[in-house]
Simulated scan of single mutants.
Amino acid sequence: MPLLIREERAGDAAAIERVTVAAFADAAHTSHTEQFIVNALRRAGQLTVSLVAQVGEDEEIVGHVAVSPVSISPSGAAGWYGLGPISVVPGRQGQGVGAALMKAALERLRQAGAAGCVVLGEPAYYGRFGFVARPGLVLPGVPAEYFQATCLRGACPIGDVNYHSAFNATA
């Protein structure tokens, strides 16, 4: 069945929450708060990109990706974003849904003129999309190899990356 990647619509929040909970239920290295983060970003108006993956005649949502602004200090570099959480229901993992969401999210950032994007995750996976660990670009408290960036225009900044306070959401 064809996969459709589209912008989040009004009424998608409950389905996105279900997808996110399912995707992270058995994942290693998770706080199990990803659904709360997405909801808090939405409430704060900080979802710069929020895409869903749909499949089938009933248009079932099987994946979601969130992108939100980040700040970098002390450089103050503008136009940087954090990708995540990205979620795919377990039955659809390994079928290209996540890759399609990644490519679409990065393309939206390019079209918007973003300077770059950071992600916290598995280097082997995110490296496929141009993400690499950048010396000097740091997420405090995280092993350097798992915090990666892709520069979309200009030079990559140096500094500490700070995500929106929504990433502290626990309910």
Rank of each mutant, 00 (worst) to 15 (best):
45 G>T: 11
43 R>L: 11
27 A>F: 01
24 F>V: 04
119 V>K: 10
88 V>N: 09
39 N>E: 14
36 F>I: 02
58 D>K: 14
59 E>S: 12
119 V>R: 07
88 V>W: 03
34 E>L: 12
38 V>H: 02
56 G>R: 05
75 S>D: 13
30 T>Y: 05
56 G>M: 06
66 A>N: 09
65 V>I: 15
66 A>M: 06
101 L>Q: 04
43 R>Q: 15
63 G>P: 10
57 E>R: 15
92 R>T: 04
24 F>N: 05
87 S>T: 12
15 A>N: 07
94 G>P: 14
96 G>M: 05
59 E>G: 08
120 L>D: 07
53 A>E: 04
94 G>Q: 14
113 G>Q: 10
70 V>S: 03
23 A>L: 05
96 G>A: 06
19 V>N: 04
32 H>G: 11
30 T>A: 13
35 Q>R: 14
51 L>F: 09
114 A>Q: 06
63 G>M: 09
72 I>N: 04
51 L>H: 12
114 A>Y: 04
48 T>W: 01
14 A>K: 13
42 R>T: 05
68 S>Q: 03
16 I>W: 02
15 A>T: 03
116 G>T: 10
45 G>D: 08
21 V>D: 00
120 L>M: 13
82 G>A: 15
83 L>P: 09
109 L>H: 07
40 A>G: 11
45 G>L: 10
13 A>L: 08
54 Q>N: 00
104 A>I: 08
59 E>M: 01
84 G>S: 10
93 Q>S: 07
55 V>G: 13
72 I>C: 03
15 A>E: 13
117 C>Y: 05
71 S>C: 04
13 A>V: 01
118 V>R: 07
52 V>C: 13
20 T>G: 09
72 I>Y: 02
13 A>Q: 14
86 I>A: 13
83 L>Y: 09
24 F>G: 02
95 Q>M: 15
44 A>H: 10
115 A>G: 11
69 P>F: 09
13 A>H: 08
91 G>F: 02
100 A>S: 14
123 P>D: 07
17 E>S: 14
41 L>Q: 03
121 G>L: 02
30 T>I: 06
21 V>W: 00
45 G>I: 13
12 D>Y: 11
48 T>V: 04
46 Q>M: 14
50 S>A: 15
107 E>S: 10
54 Q>G: 02
54 Q>F: 00
34 E>I: 13
103 K>D: 10
74 P>C: 08
84 G>T: 06
